[in-house]
Nucleic acid binder design. Sequence first.
DNA 1: GTGAAAGCGCTAACAC
DNA 2: GTGTTAGCGCTTTCAC
Lengths: 368, 368
Amino acid sequence: MGVSLKDVAQRAGVSIKTVSNVVNNYPHVTPQMRAKVQRAIDELGYRPNLTARHLRKGRTGIIAFAVPELGNPYFAELAGAVIDAAAQHDYTVLVDHTAGLRERELLVCQEFRSHVIDGLILSPIHLENGDLLARQETSPLVLLGEREYDAPYDQIAIDNVAAARSAVRHLLDLGRRRIAFLGSRTGRERQPAHLRLRGWREELTAAGVEPDDRLVVATDGYGRGDGADAMAALLDRGVRPDAVFAYNDLIALGALRTLTERGLRVPEDIAVVGFDDIEESRYGAISLTTVAPDKRAIARQAVDRLVARLAGEPVTEPRRIRPGYQLVVRESTGGSHTVAGPPAAATEATPVAATEAAPATAPPVDAP
Amino acid sequence: MGVSLKDVAQRAGVSIKTVSNVVNNYPHVTPQMRAKVQRAIDELGYRPNLTARHLRKGRTGIIAFAVPELGNPYFAELAGAVIDAAAQHDYTVLVDHTAGLRERELLVCQEFRSHVIDGLILSPIHLENGDLLARQETSPLVLLGEREYDAPYDQIAIDNVAAARSAVRHLLDLGRRRIAFLGSRTGRERQPAHLRLRGWREELTAAGVEPDDRLVVATDGYGRGDGADAMAALLDRGVRPDAVFAYNDLIALGALRTLTERGLRVPEDIAVVGFDDIEESRYGAISLTTVAPDKRAIARQAVDRLVARLAGEPVTEPRRIRPGYQLVVRESTGGSHTVAGPPAAATEATPVAATEAAPATAPPVDAP
DNA sequence: GTGAAAGCGCTAACAC
DNA sequence: GTGTTAGCGCTTTCAC
């Protein structure tokens, strides 16, 4: 094994405690003693065994962040933000991905590295409410994403219905009436996309447009290929929308590709809106109009909530936090292009809608 | 604190050892004993404390994977592959990002979570050779990426010079002669892109074309915005290339965007080749020709090397492993589009070049 | 097949 | 200010 405190103490001719004091930067150590110990540390190449420290302290300073798929830029960008936010609190992040499988989601929130991770931030897809209620593990858990649960855990998610409505409203304002929805799910007991789909339905109805279910296309996954296929299927079916609202940017980008291949003009023939504002949406030949959740805020708040629970805040009442979002209008719906500038500062955006944590900005406002 | 082995033992009226045997699925336990203990475990909701186990065993089963930026899809995709490869060996991955800062790279390979991570896979950018030689930490380290070091650590990287040459050769074969390179670095002591830049230079020279340094554009970073800016700067400078070879796909995609904005046709006016084969390169309005490193192989081999070292294989001689790569020809150089199919199986690709670990495939072959 | 006891390396009381 | 000591929860000889 490696060099331990005892070895250093022996070498320096002092007690273990003194070495420990030096290692932990205890204030009350005489400079000469500190120097002596430090020399022994350097000579022996001592590195503290954090595992032992963790065992002793009962906590590790490691939190886990589990997402469906790291290959989805939205989650990759979010993971980066979580890592940064956690670092601010001196926490290290263990990133895992579940492939959106319920089994792996269960595993991660039940018995994943028990006592090694202090807490978990999970973005579930197929986890059921009962799974959460049956959770044995006592470490704090914060939930992210579209699914809403009735369980004693903090949940962070933008208002998906309102956000979806703002996207559809934008398309209606452009005079579009046959607005397709890409990315509902096939043959699942639960419909992960249901909130955004509901927003689509509600906003159409509110505008006096009858939602046409033939314009709703289910996909197998959430990737670019699924979007491309869905768009192709819709067109092959002979259904011709004048606008598309996609569950996420990847699906929208895939649809965009199909439209280009088929020689359809965007936005003239068909306008397209996505959801997520991943960076690549700003750089395509046709930049993508999209709903931009405030990822930094989501990450920061998720970490803040987790850290608060870790610090002992009781779960009297689980909190639901709604970070802000923006509708960023770009070329795919006729907006001008904004290649520069961070997503949150895009010029052609409707104001942020946020509750609780975001410093009160303007309430949601209609797109021009 | 939580429930410990002792508590379970007490409850079941057996010794600690017996409970431990049950928990670890020891073969020689009578069924009735196992059942009795299991009942106590369930009743008390016991979860093993992995931290204690780690301390006792001297290893944790956690490895770290540190990349410059998780927001770069190449690294995100690679991270996903590493997580999967590690899972095969029952290792959990702690993903971290260094922002490409030497300081953070040092931190991660020196004193990062000592004794908590069994080993580290690091993709450095600014780490110097001396930093590696001065490394105190004794846990295994595997290096990834373009930088080549003279240090006692395994290194996994495709043959960047040859890969770059194949990209440039492809452009030369198309009759292009004024081939720009986007993505060299400004004012750094080291030139991270130097291998690909060297490939560019060598292949041009070999073809009897004088490399023109006015066609080399430095960028501040490796993102889409950097590529867009670099392309714009080149055109504004009045320099008109007939092809562009970019350091990576993001820079190429940014360049593509600028070209579209300026009304230049791709590939007719300017052909574009990238490097990385990130998924989005296949889905743009103009799909991108790119050098596709075999990410799965890179991840697998990195994990394999690390696991081998962890299993006690001595570092008699550090290995240099060269996974395969392909040149995937798509629309940005006049190829047909390949939206479907995994990157490694793309039809219009030059054969794989790989050494050592990849099951001997065909040797490097010229592009047609 | 099961039990008793030692110790992994560290921290935190508590003495001195 | 510094030293002594008792565990944190687990695995692992070694008896029985």
